[in-house]
């Protein structure tokens, strides 16, 4: 399932009351992040997954697609660290390459959101005449249950990795746009922005110089959680059989194929499931840390 609208919830934790000296803001941010234990834990987990993803060609010896009927249903052990599936494919290879796909899909969805979510949100928040139109459309897209919308869109587009990325982009961009719009709505009423307007600065300049940089913090926090949701929803789609086409080794696909053997060969689902969980946990911790440190509301309060 997709915790879709959850990302719109401001679930802010209490700030650590560290007295600040006058320092460069970026430095302060970095120092606070490095002092945030859970952020470091999340970062560590994510780093492991990213390393697996990047090193996949090096650390696996067998292709994740290589069938070997003789070895089917080998439990985890010395021959196959993670065991094999019903085709005798190495689950180690499949899970590691799955990490690569998860990271790629999550990253691409984040990129789509960063670009289109910002553009739509900024346009709606800044140009009041566009607001109604854009936000009605946005609301309509958000009114669909997220997983169903993703299923329908992948059904339309086709079952390749790229199509899944586009589908997830369509599902999540309205949510990002809404958050950006909220920040922009507040920022455009700020005195320094009004001053820039009075001084005759162009819209583009105002947006680029005065508004967007200040809307970045909530966006970055949103995107870090979005990464987690994208990974999770992609796995859900694959698991339901509507994600990236098998035999592509996504974690959801591995679990979907292993589902009918869950009693007699449970490792086929438990291992990729655990990988998925650890990844999402890492990303969520990362997001938490970023939010604690970056959330402007907390900064304002201090």
């Amino acid at each position: 399932m997709a915790p879709d609208t959850a990302i719109a919830v401001a679930d802010h934790v209490d700030a650590e009351d560290i007295p600040e000296k006058r320092q460069h803001p970026a430095r302060v941010t970095l120092r606070r992040l490095l002092h945030h234990r859970l952020f470091l834990l999340g970062g560590g987990l994510c780093l492991i997954v990213v390393l697996l993803a990047v090193l996949a060609p090096v650390i696996t010896t067998v292709s994740p697609y290589k069938l070997s009927m003789r070895n089917k249903f080998t439990p985890p052990g010395t021959d196959f660290v993670f065991g094999t599936d019903n085709f005798g494919r190495s689950l180690w290879s499949r899970v590691v390459w799955g990490a690569q796909l998860s990271m790629f899909i999550g990253g691409a969805v984040v990129l789509i959101n960063a670009v289109f979510g910002t553009a739509i949100g900024a346009a709606a928040g800044y140009f009041r005449r566009l607001d109604n139109l854009l936000m009605r459309f946005n609301d309509a897209l958000m009114a669909f249950p997220a997983v169903l919308l993703a299923i329908a869109v992948t059904a339309v587009l086709g079952p390749s990795v790229n199509d899944v990325i586009i589908a997830l982009g369509i599902v999540y961009t309205p949510r990002t746009a809404r958050i950006v719009r909220a920040s922009v709505l507040v920022l455009r009423e700020m005195e320094y922005v009004q001053a820039a307007v009075a001084a005759g600065a162009g819209h583009w300049r105002i947006l680029r110089r005065h508004i967007l940089p200040n809307a970045m913090a909530p966006l970055i926090v949103q995107l870090s959680f979005l990464f987690a949701y994208a990974v999770l929803t992609e796995a859900t789609l694959s698991f339901l059989g509507v994600g990236a086409v098998p035999p592509t080794p996504t974690w959801g696909n591995i679990m979907a194929e292993g589902r009918q053997y869950m009693i007699d060969a449970p490792w086929i689902i438990t291992i990729p499931g655990a990988a998925l969980m650890v990844t999402v946990l890492g990303l969520n911790l990362l997001g938490d840390g970023l939010r604690d440190v970056l959330d402007p509301r907390l900064r304002v309060q201090q």
């Binding site: 069938l67 009927m69 019903n86 085709f87 059989g241 086409v245 098998p246 035999p247 009918q260």
Partner: peptide
């Protein structure tokens, strides 16, 4: 197709 595992499975082996 992926709806009927026997068809999917036989295609996968035939491909190889």
């Amino acid at each position: 197709n992926k709806d009927y595992p026997p068809m999917y499975n036989s295609a996968l082996v035939m491909q190889q």
